[in-house]
Design a protein around this nucleic acid. Sequence first.
DNA 1: TGGGTCATGTAACCGGTTACATGATTTT
DNA 2: AAAATCATGTAACCGGTTACATGACCCA
Lengths: 201, 201
Amino acid sequence: MRSWYGSVDPRSVRSTTPRLTATSFALLGAVAQTGPCSPYDLKRVLARSIGPLWEVPHSQLYDEAARLARAGLLTETQEGKGRRRLSYEITEDGRRALLRWLRVPGRDRIEIRDVGLLKLGFADLLDPAEVRHLAQDHLDAWREVRDDLAAEVDGSAGRYTRALAGAAMAFWEHLERSVSEPGTPPTPDVPGPALVPVGAD
Amino acid sequence: MRSWYGSVDPRSVRSTTPRLTATSFALLGAVAQTGPCSPYDLKRVLARSIGPLWEVPHSQLYDEAARLARAGLLTETQEGKGRRRLSYEITEDGRRALLRWLRVPGRDRIEIRDVGLLKLGFADLLDPAEVRHLAQDHLDAWREVRDDLAAEVDGSAGRYTRALAGAAMAFWEHLERSVSEPGTPPTPDVPGPALVPVGAD
DNA sequence: TGGGTCATGTAACCGGTTACATGATTTT
DNA sequence: AAAATCATGTAACCGGTTACATGACCCA
């Protein structure tokens, strides 16, 4: 049967359009923020700025950076001596693509793939004490993240990530308190101000 | 060279241990909450309870549910007539596995794979007005999510997800305000109470 | 100078996505 | 009873993960 695309094999259509994934943009962004850097540098830069938001395993950095270079969004140079490190820098095209992506007003599909939150979705299978433990665990984990980010010398990188960590802590903390105090529903039936996590201290 | 596992090929170790992914538990949880249901039911149940936290495309429900049935965590029955729907129900083993997973105190790696937050990590490449737009967009998107969840008849499913939506809205709203008002840093250098997003109204 | 760690890279597998496809039910 | 839509399912590709591997650099 004939494809909906007409006579064109959809696979070829796809393969001629090297798609940029979120990971691609994470790389582009890291290079843009850092200037010339090697794949290994990128690993650290990403860990510091995006951190737990979007981890990219180092194995992928090599493939993806090379791909972006082939697409003309990064330039690739290699040391002549020693480890023959590769070094990448963003091109004008790359910066344009990055900014276009950052600026598109169109909705990105919201998706939060955090295992803690997934568990929370099934929290009604647990009793309150267990939910409280869950909340405490994740509060601790986020505190650690926040402190790690705060310990960075360069305070500006990860500024927003730190803000997120704070918000996440507030969320889990509020949740824990609402489970501890039977009077406080995790969510009122009519969403309103009470929904909003409030600072503790 | 000999494998670190000794004489056992790690691949065979892996393949004899059908691993349960987060998606597996999402399915188990949905079945546990719902009772007997078809893959198609699961799609809707997940959309309502976990919603944007963890989307599972319907194509995967068939494979994964069958896999879980093979592993003895779900039972599988099929209609004799008509569409010959498959119906799944959780087994005792399945419930145990689910609860064990829900209760493990061990840290899950925190990872938030939301494109909006990824963009935020590179927000310093944008000027304040653009960051404000970004924040407004995502505030709107989350509002929509929250309202969709609130419109559900069954108020209890998705209770915690609604709480999360509220927190996310507060985060983006606070961020937007902090960008609008030059005096309010998105994050103070020393993290503290001011970090926490505060309810608007 | 050799053992340990740092830094870099490769390769295979697999879960998840996307595209394709079709029978059952509802609607007009 | 045809068209539209609902519900169900299959299949191939590919990004991302995990495991493997090895040269450079550091330090005793």
